[in-house]
Computed example of a mutant assay.
Amino acid sequence: MASRKAPYAAPVALIASRPEQADPAIHRDSWSEDVAGWQVAGPPQNLHLSDVYWSVAPVVGASVGNGRFTLSYRHYFMSVNSNHRNIPPLWSDADVLEVKVKF
């Protein structure tokens, strides 16, 4: 009677996980708007409005990887320093989901 070998089981790679990360994030907020024909009292006029400033806010996230692939998630708290601005931002925070492949 011939002996039978057990089917080959490929080794399972461990998923490398990076614990939650928390760092400061420096970002530049900017916007501009052109208003044509604005009129309150008097003749119409064209206006250009803009605002630019640098801000530091926290960012938190986590990532997991397996061999060549890494998946990471980050949440940027961009509204933290925008409360004292004359014009509030269009959005308060941002979420980033990133997939990395190493070649």
Rank of each mutant, 00 (worst) to 15 (best):
V59R: 07
V101S: 06
H75S: 08
G67H: 02
H48W: 03
S55P: 01
T70F: 01
A10D: 05
I26E: 09
A9E: 09
V101L: 13
Y53G: 10
N83I: 03
Y73M: 08
N46S: 14
R4P: 05
V35H: 05
W38I: 07
R74L: 10
M1K: 02
V96A: 15
L49Y: 12
S32C: 07
T70Q: 10
Y53K: 00
A10W: 03
A94I: 06
S72A: 14
Y76W: 07
I87T: 15
A36N: 05
S50V: 06
A94M: 08
H84Y: 04
S63C: 03
A9F: 05
I15M: 08
W54C: 02
V96E: 07
V40A: 15
A41T: 05
V56W: 00
D95F: 01
A22M: 14
A16Q: 10
W91D: 10
Y73S: 12
L47H: 14
W31C: 05
F103E: 00
A2C: 06
P89S: 02
W54V: 08
S30R: 03
D23P: 03
V12T: 13
P58I: 03
K5I: 02
P24R: 06
V56F: 06
P11H: 02
H27P: 06
R18K: 10
V56I: 11
S72F: 04
L14F: 02
W91M: 14
Y8S: 13
Y73Q: 13
S50Y: 10
A2L: 06
W38R: 05
D23C: 08
H48G: 03
K100Q: 11
G42P: 08
N66W: 03
W91Q: 09
F77Q: 05
P58Q: 03
D51K: 11
K5W: 04
A25L: 01
L47D: 10
L71R: 08
A41V: 12
N46R: 07
L97Y: 12
R28C: 09
P7Q: 00
P24C: 09
V35L: 15
P43G: 04
K102C: 10
R18M: 06
D93N: 14
Q21I: 14
S50Q: 10
W91G: 12
V59M: 15
A94V: 07
N81S: 15
P44V: 04
P43R: 00
E33A: 15
Q39D: 02
